[in-house]
Design a protein around this nucleic acid. Structure first.
Lengths: 209, 209
DNA sequence: CGGGGTCTTGATTTCATTCAAAAATGGTGG
DNA sequence: CCACCATTTTTGAATGAAATCAAGACCCCG
């Protein structure tokens, strides 16, 4: 897992690339930059003291990552796919926040874009039943995936990551996806493509059982 | 569950009381006030479409509740115990944020005080094993409980709420607490008092198994 | 004293993890 | 293009942990 070193201090204009698996920043480091994802998918990772790895959030283009909520980053950010991002210095970002706050009277929508996925994950994994969790996860994620062609979405998330996100095992994720395929609720023509065939059924499962 | 109606628009100076069980604000309502808890304990509640109730966070004196991260409150806030709070208008609160941001270069610590517990819950319930979760919960909560006398803490949280927070059943919480008592790691002289006898052991269980 | 809610405990069942192994996939270099 | 390897996904069987079900004890409140 190579550490991705920004070559110089870009201030929001130059899109920096990162390759799949690269680390954007590490949990515990002081927050010196805020990152905005421009293309690709990233994940937030938290490792417990005993090495257990949790995916705390997936991030999509437009999301802000690494807000200085505290003094240090609360999770590690890694590239899931090859991706592009821009970074803002903390100062520059704070000024943008101040402006936005004055003009719109509410927090920069970007805070929402980082904090909301984290909140949503808490709700999803608080629900019991792997099938329910997987369905809720799909519902939450499909609208952010990039369409390939009619109804088919790019779905570049590994089942291992999904399991780490949903606080379950990869095998259980696999079985849940299989059930959804058997019920013709979703289709997965291959490993990294997904189509939702019966959105209502998916929502129904996601919201109760 | 009575709705608590603030009589008038207080701007941070008058401490408003609320009785145990009262609602401070409802999920989905527009964020018009930010609340700061002065005494007592509050909980954040999220109800799924099928009536499943989750406690998303417990809040303690000094915590800010109901930040306008989005346009509407993302959870319902209720009083766990009788409590006192002050409310700020969104405008007044935003101005404080702008000031703090400019002076300290980071987000108001209050954002941390709301968002961090929510983040922590995600980490805690992502870990498997009820005993681990209960232990991690106790570790996270003991430093915020008010001491009664040497080593004994007021612990006014019902096991039903703890279960809803930890995404488990009340019975499992009860059994986990019993185990911790049997191992002489904690003591609970009565329903709402708690003493941690072996903090290291509790931390050890919380961080692995 | 009731009586409703909370807590406790045991027995049972259900569900997901684990373990193990095979199949599919993707990438690499010949 | 093909063979090979590493990784991911898939499936089955066994195990285990926690939810559920059911009852009883306790406690606080009116």
């Amino acid at each position: 897992m190579l550490r991705h070193e920004p070559k110089n201090c870009t201030h929001g204009n130059i899109i920096m690339p990162a390759k799949a698996g690269e680390v954007i920043f590490l949990e515990g480091e002081p927050c010196e930059h805020v990152f905005e994802l421009k293309r690709g998918i990233a994940r937030g990772i938290s490792i417990s003291s005993e090495g257990e790895r949790q995916v705390t959030a997936f991030f999509f283009p437009g999301d802000q990552i690494g807000l200085p909520i505290a003094d240090v980053y609360r999770y590690t950010a890694e590239a899931v796919t090859d991706l592009g991002y821009v970074s803002y210095s903390r100062r520059g970002w704070s000024e943008a926040l101040v402006r936005s706050c004055r003009e719109e009277g509410r927090l920069l929508p970007s805070i929402c874009s980082e904090q909301d996925p984290i909140f949503q994950r808490g709700i999803i994994i608080g629900r019991n039943g792997v099938l329910v969790r997987v369905s809720a996860f799909l519902i939450s994620v499909i609208e952010r995936l990039t369409p390939v062609r009619d109804g088919l979405l790019g779905f570049p998330l590994s089942q291992v990551d999904i399991a780490a996100y949903l606080a379950t095992s990869p095998e259980s994720v696999c079985r849940a996806l299989r059930q959804l395929r058997d019920f013709a609720i979703i289709a997965m023509p291959d490993r990294d493509h997904l189509a939702v065939l019966d959105r209502d059924a998916l929502i129904h499962i996601a919201s109760g059982n």
